[in-house]
Simulated assay, not measured.
Amino acid sequence: MALIKSVFTAIFDLAYFVLKGSVAYARKKGVKVGEHCRIYIKSWGSEPFLVSIGDHVTVTSGVKFITHDGSTCLVKNAEGQRYQRFAPIQVGSHVFIGVNTIVMPGVTIGSNVVIGAGSVVIKDIPDDSVAVGAPAKVVSSFADFQTKIKDTCVSDAELVGISDYQQRVQRAIELQNAKQAAQQHHF
């Protein structure tokens, strides 16, 4: 009976995810999600109600939010009962969390933050910063990141009128290469 219930729940969850979308699914699971978020994960761990996400946040594929410390089960009191540690995770607004990032219990990620792909966030990341690595460390201000993006990347305005995705990507690469070549001539 438990197996049937488990299979039914999995099918229902998948259907909900597909029909309603990832943000609605996250909210259904108990995650507090702000407005205009892009979420590319389905798994929220065992305590999704401990995760809070602000507005305009992108959570890319493979991101894990860890809200408990399972290793505490190795420590027992005199009666043989284990210890437990749970801690909420808070993500501010205007945040990008890169592919395969792990966010550990009790972490707060500020607003206007980029977390690089594959990072392991073990401590708070302040507002207006870019953090990368394992463990994640602040490597840049968000303002410097914005300047770099504006100098090296292509805006949507530069791709107006190109509706075919592959053509947009090819044109973006051409324009990026031209910007890079122009910058090399200035140095």
Rank of each mutant, 00 (worst) to 15 (best):
S71F: 01
K5P: 08
C153S: 13
F17C: 02
Y40L: 07
C153Y: 12
I122L: 15
M1I: 08
E174F: 07
I11K: 01
P48C: 07
R82I: 15
K76Y: 10
D13R: 06
C73E: 14
V160L: 09
G98A: 11
C73S: 10
E47V: 09
A143F: 02
P135S: 11
V23R: 00
D156V: 12
T58A: 08
C37A: 06
V107L: 03
G161P: 06
N112Q: 02
L175M: 14
L175F: 14
Y16Q: 02
V130A: 11
V169S: 07
D144P: 03
I97S: 05
G62A: 03
V95I: 12
L14D: 14
P135G: 11
L175Q: 13
S129C: 10
A117T: 11
Q146M: 15
A182Y: 03
D128L: 10
Q81W: 11
S155V: 11
Q90M: 12
L14C: 08
T60S: 03
K32G: 03
Q84V: 12
E174W: 05
K123R: 13
K42M: 13
S93A: 13
V99P: 02
E158H: 08
N177T: 12
V63Y: 01
T60Q: 02
M104A: 11
E35G: 12
V7P: 04
G21A: 10
V130F: 02
Q167I: 06
S22E: 03
S155K: 06
A181T: 07
V91S: 08
I11M: 06
A131T: 01
V57C: 03
S6F: 15
I173D: 10
D13Y: 02
R27T: 05
D69H: 12
G45P: 11
F49P: 00
T147W: 01
T72I: 11
T67E: 05
I162D: 04
I109F: 01
Q90N: 14
G110F: 00
G118K: 00
H36K: 13
F65T: 00
E79C: 07
E35D: 13
G70M: 06
L74H: 08
A134I: 12
S46N: 06
K137M: 02
S43H: 08
V33H: 02
W44Y: 15
F142K: 04
V59C: 01
V91I: 15
A10Y: 05
A26R: 03
A2R: 10
A87E: 14
G161E: 09
W44V: 05
D128N: 14
C153W: 13
Y165V: 12
A131P: 06
V139W: 05
N100M: 00
Q166A: 15
T72C: 14
F187V: 15
V139R: 04
V113S: 13
G62C: 05
Q166N: 12
I97H: 00
G30Q: 01
T101V: 06
C73W: 09
A131H: 02
V18I: 11
V138Y: 04
T60C: 04
G70K: 01
Y16V: 08
V75D: 14
A131K: 00
Y25H: 02
A2K: 09
V18C: 04
F65H: 08
G116W: 04
F49V: 05
I97G: 01
D13A: 08
K5S: 10
T60E: 08
I162Y: 08
P135W: 09
A2G: 11
V18L: 03
C153A: 13
I4T: 14
T9P: 00
K42I: 13
A157Y: 03
P48W: 00
V169C: 09
I11W: 06
D124T: 05
Q146N: 15
H185V: 11
